[in-house]
Computed example of a mutant assay.
Amino acid sequence: MSTPPYVEIAKRLKGLRDALEMSAQELASKVGVKVEEVEAYESGKKEIPVSYLFEVAKACGVDLTVLIAGKEAHLHTYALVRKGKGLSVERRKDYDYKSLAYKFSGRKMEPFIVKVPPKKEEDITFNEHSGQEFIYMLKGKLEIRLGDDVLILEPGDSLYFSSRTPHALRGLDGEAEFLDVII
Score class of each variant (00 low, 15 high):
V62E: 06
V66S: 08
E90S: 11
R92P: 00
S130Q: 13
L179T: 13
Y97N: 00
V66Q: 11
K103W: 01
E128W: 06
T3E: 11
V33Q: 05
K83G: 08
T3Y: 00
E47G: 04
E154H: 07
D148V: 06
Y41I: 05
L159E: 10
G15V: 12
L16P: 03
M22S: 03
G44F: 04
V181C: 09
L151Y: 11
K34E: 13
K14Q: 15
S105C: 04
D94W: 03
Y6L: 01
L20K: 14
Q132A: 09
Y97E: 02
I48M: 05
H74R: 15
L146C: 08
R145A: 05
L159Y: 08
D94Y: 04
F126Y: 15
P49F: 10
E154N: 11
G32E: 09
S99M: 14
L100Q: 06
E72P: 03
P111S: 08
G61T: 12
Y78H: 09
D157H: 14
K108W: 02
I135A: 07
Y41E: 01
G61H: 11
A73G: 05
R107L: 11
M1G: 14
T77I: 06
D18A: 12
S158W: 07
P117C: 05
G156T: 07
S162R: 12
P118I: 01
S99I: 00
R82Q: 14
L169Q: 10
K120R: 14
E128H: 14
K14N: 13
K46T: 15
E39M: 12
G106N: 14
G32W: 01
G147K: 04
V38L: 07
S158Q: 10
L75G: 04
G140H: 05
V38Y: 04
A19N: 09
E42C: 05
V150S: 10
L146A: 06
G171E: 05
G171S: 07
E122T: 13
K93Q: 13
E177M: 09
F112V: 07
S163A: 15
K103L: 15
F54G: 02
P155C: 13
V35G: 10
E8A: 15
G32C: 09
R107Q: 11
E110I: 07
P166W: 12
Q132L: 03
A101W: 00
L179D: 05
A69W: 02
R107W: 00
V62Y: 05
S51W: 00
A79M: 03
L64W: 03
S51N: 12
G86C: 09
A101T: 02
Y6V: 00
E39V: 00
R91S: 12
P49H: 12
R145N: 14
R164T: 13
R91Q: 10
